[in-house]
Amino acid sequence: MNKWSDNRAWWLVLPVVLIVAFSAVIPLMTVVNYAFQDTFGNNEFYWAGIEWFQEVLRSDRFHGALGRQFLFSFIILSIEIPLGIAIALAMPKKGLWVPFCLILMALPLLIPWNVVGTIWQIFGRIDIGLLGAALDGLGIEYNYTQNTIDAWVTLIVMDVWHWTSLVVLLCYAGLQSIPDAYYQAARIDGASKWATFRFIQLPKMNRVLLIAVLLRFMDSFMIYTEPFVVTGGGPGNATTFLSIDLVQMAIGQFDLGPAAAMSLVYFLIILLFSWVFFTVMSYLDRAES
C-alpha cells in the first residue's frame, strides 16, 4: 500500500517515543553507565573502561549460565515447535469443538508465571503432587530439588505445558488461511499426506512458524520466574539461567559493574538473534510478493 509522505506524523508517534524513552532509554543508559565505571561507595564513580566486560566474558560463572541458557532454549524449541505443529494439524477445522479447544488451550498462557511455577512445584512433589506421587508409585526415583536431571526435566515439561499452546494457536491460524481449493487440488493429484503437508501446509505456515520460533526463542532466553519459583536455580546452580544469575548479581550481591556489563552482553545476544530472524522474515515477505 502506498503511504503518504509526511514528517508531521512524528507528532502522532511522539507520546510512544516519550514513554518508551522514559522506561527504556534512561534505564538502559544507567546500565551502560555502570558497565564502564567502578565505585567504592559514596556515589563516587571511576572510569573502568572495558574491565567489567573482560571480567564477565572470562568468568566461568557467565560461561556456565550462558551454556545452560542456550541448551535450555534449544531443547525447548526442538520440542515445542514440532509438537505445536502436530497438534495444530490434529485439531478439528470447524465445528462446535473449535472454540472449546481454543479456550482450553489458551488457558496456560494466561496464568501468572509465578503461579505456573507454583503449580509445577506442587505437581512434582513426591508427598503431595500427582506427578511426583505417580512416578514414585511406579518405582522411579524422582526429586527435582536434589537431582540435576530431574530438575531439568521438570522445567522443560513445565515450559512445554506453558507455551506449546502459543505455537499451536499460531500454526492453527496459519492453517486456517489455506483455501479448501488447495486440498481439493492435492486430492485430485493423488498427493500423499506427507506431500500435502510438505508442499501445501508447511509453506503456508512458514511465516507464522518464524514468528513462533522468534517468540519462543526470546521468551525462553529471558525465562526467570518459573525456574526461580520451582528450583530457585538449584540444585547447586544446575538450573541457574542467565536472568536468574543476573538478578542474583545485581539485586542480591549488588555487584553493579559486572551485572551491568553482563546485562549488555545478554541484551546484545538477544538483539543479534532477533535481527537475524527479522531479516529472514522480511526477506520471505519480499519473496512472496
Binding site: 532466553f221 529471558m222 526467570y224 536472568s243 553493579l256
Partner: peptide, 27 residues
Amino acid sequence: YNFMGDKHLFFWLLTNRMAPPAVFALP
C-alpha cells in the same frame, strides 16, 4: 505515513519487547 526514520523507529520499538526484564530490574 512515510516519515523520517519510520523503519528504524519501528525496529527500535520492537527491540524493547526483546529486552530481558532482568536487565531492567535494577535501573
